[in-house]
Each structure stands twice: as structure tokens, then as C-alpha cells.
Nucleic acid binder design. Structure first.
Lengths: 198, 198
DNA sequence: AATTGTTTATGACCTAAATCATAAGGGTTC
DNA sequence: GAACCCTTATGATTTAGGTCATAAACAATT
């Protein structure tokens, strides 16, 4: 996350997207840096039979879609506004100039990439083999700890749907519903009128 | 990948590991930057029932295990020498000094992180749902294109075992063996005395 | 208040991949 | 060259999770 005023001095434009709107698409060349001012953005893929996989959900203050700027590849996923959202956009060239001019901001981008890589590494190991219940607890714990900074037991009300959990873990809704019930029985989760707590 | 001489000016030590030796372990705090001079290194996890998942395989010239240096978290996986290997090691503090002093090297690290993130994003979508045959072709294509820079059909002799493919994809050896046979029938792979070609 | 759509819920059934067992080929070491 | 181990191979069986169908709870919109 880069300080707003710096972004503006490097030609940032403020864009607004309404809920459900596409920000960029899988396969497009990466031309811009994006940073969220307000709202939420998800990055996702669809496999051959239309099933969605959510790569990640991003919140105000976070940037997204930078890796292809550095790696010179096409976007590996779509980006879509999950709610009405305001986003700052900086062209690739300006962005690279900015990093040169502000080493401390460069470092903060590197840190953001590193922590996403950390999350992906954990999820990869998890997705590869573990049972549904493990996978579900892992994203919930990730959201709780790394996104919402909560640590008290059951202090976190899961604010995404069972369907979104399914799309983040590669499971099916029904499986998520059954697994969360089973997790409730085991005391790992609480369910208060349909809302999950962890 | 950072120029060797620069690493030495920042206190790099050359370490040698023999095949199978552990370089660091999951859960340890990340204290050093590592870059491979010769040999191969894999990063891996083991799940509750002992099944291995290979996060990635790294070759001469590549660095590994940097994300936790930036993200201030513990190692999410083990690192083990796949062959006898020589590795340069720089302490975290020296490494961060190095990045400050050499913005261009910092950028190359950022690029390395970005391209790994790209790979992880693709594999995550793949792992989440696709059938075994898809998954297998994806890592093979990744190795062919991004690691060995080959593009001619069947020019790439897959140099990892069926077991390692299984550990990279989260499948079982038997499934990999059956799927590769089926892929050969479909003309996607060739198998010449047990070796896979793509 | 009625309508429509989304989210959660549950049961029945089916299928693909894991599991288990067993073996043969090839490489390495003593 | 015997012993050992790893890799590839194949068949039989099991099972977890996907698939399909159906519905109730709730939210949003008219």
C-alpha cells in the first residue's frame, strides 16, 4: 500500500466501479497498478465447466494485480468489484518510476507480495490434500488473523457466504455447509442464526 | 537472483549441503537470504498423515525462502537439498541493507517474487478443482516453459518422478501413472522407456 | 403484502480418485 | 551377483465428496 499523495504525483486517476463490475480480465496484458480506496475487490478464475475459484479478496488500502507488472505476463485471473468501489490507477511506467523514486514504497510493495506468497503457500499445501474441514478452518483463520486482526476465540463473525468459502477452497457449497455443521459440533465454530463465528 | 560479488560484499557465506539434507524447517523464524550456486533445492510440507506436498523446486541462480524475511512470519515449509548443493547465505539484516544499497537488485527480487506468485496463482486455480490430467499437464508445462525455456513439442524430457509430480499436484502416484498413460493415448505426452516427454 | 432472488439446508445417489495389494523393471551398493 | 530400494505398473475395492433434487429461511424489491 502506497501513500495516496505519492500516487497522485505519479499521475494516479481515481476510478469508480459498481458492484459486480469487471476491473480487468484474465489473459489481458497488465498495464496498470491498482490500489483500493474504498470497497472490496475479488480476483477469480472460472474453470472449464464454469466453477469459480477465488484467488483472493482485497480491501481498502490494499493493491492487487501487481505481480504481472513485474513478471511481464498476462493477468492470471479476473478482477471484479465485490461492492461499489473506488480505485486508484497508475500506469505501469509511472508506477515503476515511482518505485525508483521511493525505495521505502518499493519495500512495502515487496512486503505485500511476500505476504500474499505466504498465504498462497499455505493454501496450496492445504488445497492439495487436506480434508474439507481443514481447508475451511484455514481460510477462516487466515481472514480472522491476517485480514481482520482478531485473536479472541469466536470474536470473528465470518462475513463471506458459504458459497464464497467454497470458491476459495475449491469445494462445493453443500460440502461447506455440511463441514461447517460438523465443525460446530466439534466446537471449532459457532453458528448463530446462520452466521459463522470463529 | 542477485549478483554473486554483491552478495559477498554483504557478508555472504558459502554453505554446502548433501543430497537430502535439511536447509531450514517449517515453523522456524526466517533469519537469512539463500541463493543457490549449484544443485537443486525443494521446499515442501507434510500433512497430518505424512503425505508430502512440494511447494516448489529451485535451481542454480534462484533464491528461495525470502517471503518470510519480508512478511515477518515463520517459514511456511521445509527446504531440503534435492542433490548435493552449494548455497550462499546472507543474514536478514545484511540482506535488507543490500536491497537499500542496490535498488536494481531489489527490483530483481521483487520480480522473482512476482513470478512465483504468478505460478502459485495458476496452480491454486488448478489444484482447486480440475481433473488430474489438467493438473499434471500444468506443472509439466510450467517446468517446460518457465524453468527450462523450451517450446518445441516433445522437446522436454520430464526430469522428475511420477511421485514428485504427485507431490506437486496433490495427487497419488497411482493416479499420476494412470493419468499420464491416458494422456499419452490422447497424444498430449509421449512415454519413451518410462520417461515422459512433452 | 406479494414476488423474486439468494443463502442455507438435507437427503439420495453416483463417480472419480484414494486406498490396498502385489509385482516387475531398473539402478545402486555391499 | 545378490540384496536392496526406488520407480513404474496394474487390478480390486472403498469412500469421500460431488451431483442432483428439493425446500425452507431470509433479504431485497416492487
Amino acid at each position: 500500500m502506497i501513500a495516496e499523495d505519492i500516487l497522485y504525483t505519479f499521475g494516479a486517476e481515481k476510478l469508480t466501479f459498481s458492484k459486480g463490475e469487471q476491473i480487468f480480465s484474465e489473459g489481458q496484458p497488465a498495464l496498470c497498478y491498482f490500489q483500493i480506496l474504498s470497497g472490496e475487490v475479488k480476483m477469480n478464475n472460472f474453470n472449464d465447466d464454469g466453477k469459480e475459484f477465488i484467488q483472493g479478496i482485497f480491501f481498502a488500502g490494499q493493491s492487487f494485480g501487481e505481480p504481472p507488472l513485474f513478471a511481464d505476463v498476462k493477468y492470471p485471473a479476473h478482477a471484479e468489484a465485490l461492492s461499489d468501489a473506488e480505485v486508484l490507477r497508475v500506469s505501469k511506467d509511472d508506477f515503476l518510476e515511482l518505485l525508483k523514486a521511493h525505495p521505502d514504497e518499493h519495500l512495502s510493495i515487496t512486503k505485500a507480495l511476500a505476504s500474499r506468497l505466504y498465504y498462497k503457500a499455505i493454501m496450496a499445501a492445504e488445497l492439495s490434500s487436506q480434508e474439507p474441514e481443514h481447508r475451511i478452518l484455514r481460510i477462516i483463520d487466515y481472514l480472522k488473523k491476517h485480514v481482520h486482526d482478531l485473536y479472541e476465540p469466536f470474536s470473528f463473525q465470518v462475513n463471506i457466504t458459504r458459497q464464497q468459502i467454497a470458491d476459495l477452497t475449491g469445494l462445493r457449497v453443500e460440502t461447506v455447509i455440511r463441514a461447517t455443521k460438523s465443525l460446530e459440533k466439534k466446537g471449532e465454530l459457532k453458528i448463530k442464526n446462520r452466521k459463522l463465528f470463529r
